[in-house]
Design a protein around this nucleic acid. Structure first.
Lengths: 279, 279
DNA sequence: AAGTGGTCTAGACCACGTG
DNA sequence: ACGTGGTCTAGACCACTTC
């Protein structure tokens, strides 16, 4: 059922439109010349279509996907397995896969709470890009377990929320892994999404140091932070497959952000960020 | 290399010992008649051998496992994938798989990390008791879900670490529950321990708001906090059996304390406090 | 009976780390 | 150069659900 008698062109039917790059609806072809694995491309592609709500009338079967994207069933399953782990879809033997209502506010192991705190906070992810280039930095390279003069992709952004500065965000990534990011416009993109889509890197572990500081005059100016107000400094080492992929240092306005830790015997601990609820 | 020229019988070599059921060392055969998938049996089998520390000298390669257990590489990989997800082994392209040191000393739900942060921090819990009495406080009573003029046990302490001030700690508890505490000398006692011992109250849930502030002059004086340094404000509502038992407000020196959050796909999140590891 | 996902096989080539 | 894990293919049979 629900076979694609669709008006939109499928990939299998013809090669008529092979150079489409615009955000057209329907399936986009995979790039067999890309260094990214096919399953990774397929995962990104299906995530895109999920967000575009193209599967409102049911998720495709494995068989359909092998035909539409012209890959083997194993490749399809590898991509679907990851989507399942991320809580985006759900499958059952005999009755196909379904799109999950909400991306699970709280998945099994993979909670990205801390990662997403300074990455969006649920607010529009507008940013002011102050620097985006290749640099070297001996101190950062050390933390990334690289040589002192290793080239690094450096991205410095002012994160805005409701039009007002919320944080200064500085990120360094090994250029050997992340050079593919350089063409992205990060005034309106999420770093970890682009990292997955363009570099095939998906953070799976990390360490975060959270401190309370009194920011220097320059930071105060950039953040428009009033006197008598403090700030968080959050430094983060991000790993993927046990390999360091990012060092990040973020300064967050203390009057616009707080951490909320909830704990209970039964459900364990949950940490989240939010705008201050009182005082 | 490391082929098993072992004294223990391998499966591939012969069918000589087919009715072994005892906990013998070495590989046990899989049961092809079992309703359990082969990969599941293999996962169980490898977990058993891991616990028996049979892989102290290196984890077998995929190729070896296909031979020893007589299954396809896909089946082996399915089992290894799960062991990896559970954090028992770790693999990298080109250099084989290794047994992971410890499956993460990470208990399921009941970590009291945050609670113990200002309660001890691993340092001697010396305190300077500045006030300890019955009071009323309308704002605090509201948070404890009590009437505005309900009597509260109020305890204010300067927490010392290595003889230097670390934090100002103010705690309010309903006098109806905690009056039994009044005879304790809290210069050298832990609040939650006394609460359990004398009042039979054991916190089992809580909520903590963590903010970065610029402390006022009085707090700076008490904490001996240098200029140009920030501080944490940590407010906590503690529950026992869903009943509020404590409201606490703590101001912690930013130069002597940091939060460390560690996150991984396999083990979830862990939050702890420590003295800063770097600037 | 037909279609789905779950399991399994026997190959193949490649990227990476080490000798 | 070699062995490792990573990816990919083209099949196959089975268990389960729905019709």
């Amino acid at each position: 059922m629900a076979k694609s008698e669709a008006p939109s062109p499928t990939l299998a039917s013809s090669k008529a439109s092979f150079s489409f790059d615009a955000p057209t609806p329907g399936p986009h072809p995979l790039d067999r010349e890309s260094p990214l694995p096919l399953w990774s491309q397929l995962q990104t592609e299906l995530t895109r279509r999920l967000k575009a709500e193209e599967f409102a009338e049911g998720f495709p079967t494995e068989q359909e996907l092998t035909v539409v994207y012209d890959v083997s069933r194993s490749t399809v399953r590898e991509a679907l397995r990851r989507l399942n782990e991320l809580g985006l879809i759900q499958g059952r033997r005999g009755q196909g896969r379904t799109v999950r209502a909400s991306p699970q506010p709280f998945r099994t192991g993979a909670l990205f709470n801390l990662i997403t705190i300074s990455e969006g906070m649920g607010l529009p992810a507008r940013s002011d890009v102050r620097a985006f280039e290749i640099r070297t930095d001996a101190a950062v390279a050390l933390r990334l377990a690289l040589g002192a003069d290793a080239p690094l992709v450096y991205l410095e952004r002012i994160r805005l929320a409701a039009g007002e500065p919320l944080a200064i965000d500085r990120a360094w990534l090994p250029a050997s892994l992340a050079a593919g990011l350089l063409e992205v416009d990060f005034s309106d993109a999420l770093l970890y999404e682009e990292l997955a889509a363009r570099c095939g890197i998906r953070p799976d572990a990390g360490k975060e140091y959270i401190r309370a500081i009194d920011p220097d005059a320059e930071s105060r100016g950039v953040l428009e932070l009033p006197d008598g107000t403090g700030a968080f400094q959050i430094e983060r080492l991000t790993l993927s497959d046990s390999i360091p992929v990012e060092w990040r240092s973020t300064i967050v306005r203390g009057d616009r952000f707080e951490l909320l830790a909830e704990w209970s015997m039964t459900s364990g601990m949950k940490l989240s960020g939010q705008v201050p609820s009182n005082t």
